[in-house]
Amino acid sequence: MVRIKNRYIVVRIVPQEPTKVLNFHDGVLTKCVLRNVKKYQGDYGLGIVEHGFRVKYCNERTKVAIIRCLHRSHRIVASTLPLITMIGDVRAKFHTLYTGATIIQCNKFIISHQQRFLDEMVGQIASAKERKDFIKRVMEFDLEQ
């Protein structure tokens, strides 16, 4: 059996003005990346990238997202990400955290990354209930398959 190889890129979205919550969903990210691939790599690049491209996960609190693309086309996507300066209608940039071959590895990485994020953020929240709520919201990790 031939296996189709994928690459999963874990990115963090860094807006220019720091905000608590981003109101992005997967569609906006997909459109933004594909539009920029077309801008910087032309029709050829878009043709290679478009098949198999998908945003798998997007957390609004921690601003972490997973982008899936086919092996070989991931170099085009990865080299386009640093050139992006606008996401949707917000001035923001991508910060590549990790590139993995399976989503499980990405999952492991994100969990450790989010724990670090929680350590920073929990100290700023006063009430216990809010804190519990916040931790739950951040750590929930369900992939819309």
């Binding site: 220019q16 170099r75 990865a78 080299s79 640093p82 940039k93 910060h95 590549t96 955290l97």
Partner: peptide, 21 residues
Amino acid sequence: PFELRGPYDVANLAFIFGLSE
């Protein structure tokens, strides 16, 4: 500060600058 990119992003830019990985 907005023009700075992470080290892995910069390494990925090698693709368009014609360097190997």
